[in-house]
Design a protein around this nucleic acid. Structure first.
Lengths: 256, 256
DNA sequence: CTCAATTTGTTCGTATGTATG
DNA sequence: ACATACATACGAACAAATTGA
């Protein structure tokens, strides 16, 4: 068995589906452009180290999805352009995050069970005496792309319950008079969709997700806003400017 | 068929493996603590809407991995604490990134086929006349966690070929006299492991990955360093400070 | 000590899907 | 298209260990 075939066997996913996913990926990244002929079944059979029929099954899947067109005696051709689905830019700066959220229209969901206070890490401040739990789903068109669970310090919530019930919480907090924000931190890991979220987002159980946690601490050292946001993994893009012109001199040689 | 069972059918992954992954997740996040009894097979069968035997298969998998201990007549118990595998912090600031890379020991790989010049986006600068292609794998212990493909402008490489062949490239570039860096940008998306990378990282084909692209442009507007880095999705954690004390006043009310 | 309830272990049979040659 | 082998998933029945009344 070839080295690649061994790798394929690591996964419980059926071979022909793995092969299909890889072919789809190649089309998506533009390795095979629109209208272009892809490798022959025999070449692919060789490359992946699987049976000819298995490759055929994979290509059949792609044809069903309208990604390729097969023609006996000629070959298989890429049918359509694949749009870039990575349209959601995650913000890494406070001001652009606030701006993005302002234009956001969340669909709030009723929360049945009372939620426990958020668990806070060592550098995430002290817990407020009481929190209000808000849950909402973000849509683009009629497709859900993220689920937001917010724990908001009750005294903050009480200042404008109306607003918090129909808009994103962070911009409201940011512009509140008398609320002094000390730090805001965001953590991101790659996770997998648990049953409830998978249902809400319309993805398979354990599909890859981006799990963001955003904690806002005020001057008293109290975590007034703790959000756990789960994004579909297939729609997000995160951009960071590591360095730009005016600070290059200072930052180019960090001391150790 | 229950709502959840429908979600399970969305995936090509066998049912019992999906269930096992969900149970594993619950143990990892501490919903079932070490030593504690987990739900009975019958409860889980009910919850997931699958057959009893299927749940058993899932639990068997966890037992093989040493995560649980089953006892006839009593129940199934969480055996061990699960360590936090998210140990690799991705840097979002230039100086800390350079620092991290300095202590990095890459294992360089021979590159057989000549690589084409990197494709550059509209804001990623102009291409240099010629590039040198470097490829390396990063390890922690004997486990690979990322694969780095670097395209380095040839004139930069020629200044110190020796160094570039055994150390991470970015710190060398950063400290080079006469190289004036204008901007450095990093983009991150969630992807899936293609065959070759899956082999190098020891993960199944199409396992979730974090794909980072780092582009360094000099004062002439030329992309002197273009890196495509693929991390295992299961070991990274990205932390961003959105806001801290001293800039809070200025940034709290962004204009729109 | 016995009994019933609970919970996991084991084994059928059947149907369908996957992969090969 | 066909024959073969193996994996997946279900439902059902029965066995074995544990617990507490």
């Amino acid at each position: 068995m070839s080295e690649l075939a061994k790798t394929l066997r690591l996964s419980a996913v059926p071979l022909y589906i793995q092969v299909a996913a890889e072919l789809r990926r190649r089309i998506e990244i533009g390795r095979w452009a629109s209208g272009q002929k892809i490798s022959t079944i025999e070449d692919l059979q060789e490359e992946f180290g699987v049976a000819r029929v298995t490759v055929r099954q994979a290509v059949e899947l792609l044809e069903k999805d309208g990604l390729v067109r097969r023609q006996q005696g000629r070959g298989t051709f890429v049918a359509a352009d694949v749009e870039d689905t990575r349209w959601l830019k995650l913000d890494t700066s406070w001001s652009s995050l606030i701006e993005t959220l302002k234009h956001n229209v969340p669909k709030f969901m009723p929360v049945s069970a009372p939620m426990p206070a958020p668990r806070l890490g060592p550098e995430e401040g002290r817990a407020a005496p009481e929190y209000v739990f808000l849950r909402s789903v973000q849509y683009r068109g009629d497709r859900a792309y993220s689920v937001v669970n917010v724990q908001l310090a009750k005294d903050i919530y009480e200042r404008d319950p109306q607003a918090f019930r129909c808009h994103a919480a962070l911009p409201i907090v940011a512009e509140m008079k008398g609320v002094k924000i000390a730090t805001a931190r965001q953590t991101l890991v790659i996770g997998s969709a648990e049953p409830e979220l998978a249902g809400l987002l319309g993805v398979p159980l354990n599909a890859p997700t981006a799990e963001a946690r955003c904690v806002v601490v005020d001057r008293r050292g109290i975590a007034i806003y703790v959000a756990d946001i789960t994004y579909r993994g297939d729609c997000i893009r995160l951009e960071t400017t590591l360095l730009n012109d005016n600070e290059s001199q200072r930052a180019r040689a960090p001391k150790h």
